[in-house]
């Protein structure tokens, strides 16, 4: 279990994080999500004992991360941001080096190395220098070194940055696989990453936690962003005003964006955003039937986590900017 209590960290005069508190229970995969500069890396550096906070405390299984530094470091596997690795060592040599320093008995080295190679798909690059590896393979070496001692706690800081889409899917699958039996913190500024892998999401912005919940609960809590796309055959402006007149419709916009399918003759497409708690599907259907138009398509999209994220981060920034100018 990871307990983070009231962490504040100042770099000189810059406050990177302020009063950050959260608890990650054993076995949870927690996404630590926030835009660049939000303070994710800073928080991880403190949890892993790389540096102390300006104020606050971290407890790992009730042990203070500073007072019991060595013990705490034994429990954690860490992949720092940008995956720093010794480029002049080969993969097996490096994994052996890490095992020695982690005090793993020599007799277990080859078994553990083999397990990591299998798990992380490193079979083809065993003897290569790490410096010669592609970004994707390097990332896997980074995950392998973090996992080799089978830690209770795994901390991965932006593990998919710089990877191509196929590699991203592979690393995500790997994380899901690994995370099953571990307490895992996954830092990322990429939203689908947490949606795809995490039990819980913590959203940070400007050094503060702005949301905490499961991906589903965060979606539910967000207001007014359910979107209904409809394609209707009938007079366009009448349809529009009818939609706008519906109780619970917050906003109506034309739905023929660049990537939309071409419309049939006499048809128009609209996107209706509903106010929170309203499901407009039935009312729209009834309205079309009453007016004797023809409903060609209806597509309902629940609030996306992207929207929650944007609302919490960009919105907060806008508010902060407005606050500072007024």
């Amino acid at each position: 279990m990871i307990e983070v209590k009231n962490l504040t960290k100042d770099y000189g005069t810059t406050r990177a994080i302020e009063n950050v508190s959260f608890t990650v229970p054993t076995g949870q995969i927690m996404g630590f999500l926030g835009p660049n500069g939000a303070g994710k890396t800073t928080t991880m550096k403190i949890i892993t004992g790389f540096m102390p906070p300006t104020e606050g405390q971290v407890l790992i299984d009730s042990l203070d991360a500073i007072d019991h530094s060595l013990e705490v470091r034994r429990k954690i596997g860490y992949l720092p941001e940008n995956t720093p690795l010794y480029t002049d060592m080969d993969v097996v040599g490096y994994l052996t080096f890490v095992q020695r320093l982690r005090g793993i008995p020599q007799s277990e080295h080859s078994v553990r190395t083999r397990r990591m190679i299998e798990l992380c798909g490193l079979g083809e690059v065993l003897k290569k220098d790490i410096g010669e590896l592609s970004k994707g393979y390097r990332q896997r070496v980074g995950v392998a070194q973090a996992m080799i001692h089978d830690p209770e706690i795994l901390i991965l800081d932006e593990p998919t940055v710089g990877l191509d889409p196929n590699q991203i899917v592979e690393i995500r699958d790997l994380i899901k696989e690994l995370g099953r039996a571990k307490t895992l913190i996954l830092c990322t500024h990429i939203l689908p990453e947490v949606d795809a892998t995490c039990d819980r999401v913590l959203i940070v912005n400007r050094g503060k936690i702005v949301a905490d919940g499961t991906p589903a609960s965060l979606r539910a809590a967000a207001s007014g962003h359910d979107r209904l796309t409809v394609e209707i055959k009938g007079p366009s402006d009448q349809i529009r005003s009818a939609l706008e007149g519906l109780p619970g419709a917050a906003r109506v916009a034309r739905g023929d964006g660049a990537d939309a399918e071409p419309l049939g003759a006499g048809c128009s497409r609209f996107v209706v955003e509903s106010a929170s708690g309203h499901d407009l599907r039935e009312t729209v259907f009834a309205m079309v039937r009453d007016r004797q138009w023809i409903l060609l398509e209806m597509h309902h999209e629940a609030t996306r986590l992207e929207d929650v994220f944007r609302q919490l981060t960009v919105g907060a920034d806008a508010q902060a900017a407005a606050g500072s100018t007024s």
Partner: peptide, 14 residues
Amino acid sequence: KTGTIELLVTLPVR
């Protein structure tokens, strides 16, 4: 420079 120091000092070594 390369950041490997971060890996090194977060290992259980003095």
